[in-house]
């Protein structure tokens, strides 16, 4: 499949497209395009790795997918809605269906680990009992039961990353976008995180995971989206990427 063509990949059980990018280009300010001619369909319940060299546009593509940036051309259709046409309230509703693991964590320093993870649940209007149950369970499962009251500054980099992951998945989103979610995490916990992502995928969440780790792709083989100089070149079979 050539660059710019519709990139449909495996790992899809339902076949229902939840995210479609049509002829998308993106630039920051008046600079050159960092993404070019992206045509991509992500189906419900699919799992993709997003790979490419540094500066290829992985984070920009994730920003587009998470609706934190707008395309300079083309259109993005999320959960059947053209995001350029939806109103502010609808945009919020669409965003609440997405979980994002930010590469720079973006935790709120004045809140505890618990309250950081609880944030999307509170925004979604969950009651405190439910929040307490979900968040405690999630942090406990990630090995942070003893650190729930700690502020981000009191946590190690790896722990912060786990809190970021917990915040992204605690709502069981329809689409999980993770930017290098395992980069700071100790190997023993990588296993646990990948199990978590796989479980979400199994339960119907579409996962797009940006990574530089070939080891990850080798051990948990899923289809790969390859970005190079802002273009999505082709879907690469997992075994081949691992071999590379």
């Amino acid at each position: 499949m050539s660059a710019g063509s519709d990139t449909r990949v495996d790992g899809d059980r339902s076949g229902r497209a939840i995210l479609q990018l049509h002829g998308v280009g993106m630039r920051y300010g008046s600079g050159d395009e960092v993404l070019r001619d992206i045509d991509l369909t992500i189906n419900a319940g699919s799992f993709h790795y997003l790979v490419g060299p540094s500066g290829a546009g992985k984070s920009s593509l994730l920003r587009l997918m998470s609706l934190s940036a707008a395309p300079s051309r083309g259109n993005v259709v999320l959960f059947g809605r053209d995001v350029a046409l939806v109103d502010r309230d609808e945009l919020g509703r669409l965003r609440r269906r997405i979980g994002v693991v930010f590469q720079d964590f973006r935790l709120l320093d004045h809140l505890s680990a618990f309250d950081n993870v609880a944030l999307p649940l509170r925004i979604g209007g969950a009651d405190e009992e439910q929040i307490s149950s979900y968040v405690s369970q999630m942090l406990g499962w990630l090995g942070l039961a003893e650190r729930m009251e700690a502020k981000p500054a009191q946590l190690s980099m790896g722990q912060r990353q786990l809190v970021t992951v917990a915040r992204a998945v605690v709502t069981k989103p329809d689409l999980l976008l993770a930017d290098e979610p395992t980069s700071n995490v100790e190997p023993a916990r990588v296993e646990r995180l990948m199990f978590l992502f796989s479980e979400l995928h199994r339960l119907g969440t579409a996962v797009v995971l940006a990574t530089h780790s070939r080891e990850l792709i080798r051990r948990w083989p899923f289809p790969v989206l390859h970005l190079e100089r802002g273009r999505l070149i082709r879907p690469v079979p997992a075994d081949r990427t691992a071999a590379e």
């Binding site: 998470s66 934190s68 919020g92 965003r95 269906r97 973006r106 944030l119 925004i123």
Partner: peptide
């Protein structure tokens, strides 16, 4: 603005 931006990315409506 950065925190507000994060809240909105998490889906917080303006009223929240």
């Amino acid at each position: 603005d950065e925190t507000v931006d994060l809240l909105r990315l998490l889906g917080a409506p303006d009223r929240y």
